[in-house]
Design a protein around this nucleic acid. Structure first.
Lengths: 210, 210
DNA sequence: GTCTATAAATAGATAGAC
DNA sequence: GTCTATCTATTTATAGAC
């Protein structure tokens, strides 16, 4: 019997991580409240300090998990045997899938940008660098194969990642706008955005823009 | 003599607004500290409650100023006699100019998105709706003139505004990345981003993408 | 691993003199 | 309009029992 009567091992930890991600996304690092996190996780507050060391350490762990997942998926795409075109599609999908799988990631990501990556540790910074590097190598590979024109990876990165994070993070905002006269602001699908980004990015890289 | 010996009328108010914008950008609404704002403005803390009513009211005023400025500029572009193509260029320029003129705007904008526009009053919401509406009418005008293909204004908006705000807000982050192995992350100009967005957006709207 | 109780610091806000 | 002093509530964090 590997389980307790009511609670599985690690449940408290998981519940805290989930509740904390929601709280950090909604209120930011400084605005987040450990009491509220504990209450939402239906766990005693002291457990935060037992399982993690501090509010800051809890936050860093959440950040690290998110960026690790994105970086891993992107590295996998870049290292695969796919064509440069499909690697670009895979890159866009990687960001979209991870941004969607972790409902609080996009909002936390926006806040970290605003904060100048202040709460980010060396490993997470390496993740960010790797994502950018992977995109750069995909572009280079396409250029060597004579299928892509040279382009600044930072510009391509910004025009893919920013709209995607923006889209995922604006769910609430768009519903509010919809109710206030911007008819249809809420009616837009994830696929519409992804397809648009694929079309545009590939057109740019393949020099299909007059 | 309309001035006092040392301090012009309204100086305290202005100093507080500037210091507060910096504080809110760096730490978010909940994380911002009124003591720190007063200290940075070299003004007594009680002045915040005299000139504004509360921390919340001070924040709302900053938000309103920023979005009013953007909306005004965008409305001007949409209502001008320019061609649809130049109106699109004007729209992109409007966002870029205001995002650049108010150094704290992009980071505060990112945070507001993350917060689901919680601190936003009705006037500011109207601004947001008008910006989206103006872009929609520019696209419609281009379609009626047979120069644009139909496109979802929300998608076009996201692919313009998100990368621009992202670019302006990531100044610090990109310098950090640059020092950590992402060679050239800091070496990218505002004009490079704006030119890229103009080219891509017009190519999409004019159906010049295969 | 989990709980109660509480310490210690910091926050937003105001009263009242000048 | 500006300043000092202070009130009150909230917050992170820990000690210690179970």
């Amino acid at each position: 019997m590997a389980r307790r009567t009511t609670t599985a091992v690690g449940d408290t930890r998981r519940a805290l991580l989930d509740a904390a991600a929601a709280e950090f996304a909604a209120r930011g690092y400084a605005g987040a409240n450990v009491d509220r996190i504990a209450r939402a996780a239906r766990v005693n507050k002291a457990m935060i300090y037992y399982h993690f060391r501090s509010k800051a350490a809890l936050y860093r762990e959440i950040i690290r998990d998110m960026f690790d997942a994105v970086a891993a998926r992107v590295r996998e795409v870049a290292g695969s045997g796919a064509s440069p075109e499909n690697k670009v599609r895979g890159f866009i999908a990687a960001i979209a899938i991870e941004g969607e799988a972790r409902p609080h990631f996009p909002r936390i990501w926006l806040r970290e940008i605003a904060e100048g990556a202040e709460h980010i540790d060396a490993g997470t910074l390496r993740d960010a660098r790797d994502v950018l590097g992977a995109l750069g190598s995909i572009i280079e590979e396409g250029c060597r194969a004579g299928r892509f024109h040279p382009a600044n990876p930072l510009v391509i990165h910004a025009t893919i990642v920013a709209p995607l994070m923006f889209f995922f993070a604006t769910g609430k905002f768009r519903q509010k706008l919809d109710r206030h006269g911007a008819r249809g602001a809420a009616r837009i699908s994830r696929d519409e955005v992804v397809t648009h980004l694929e079309r545009v990015t590939l057109a740019v890289l393949e020099g299909r823009i007059a």
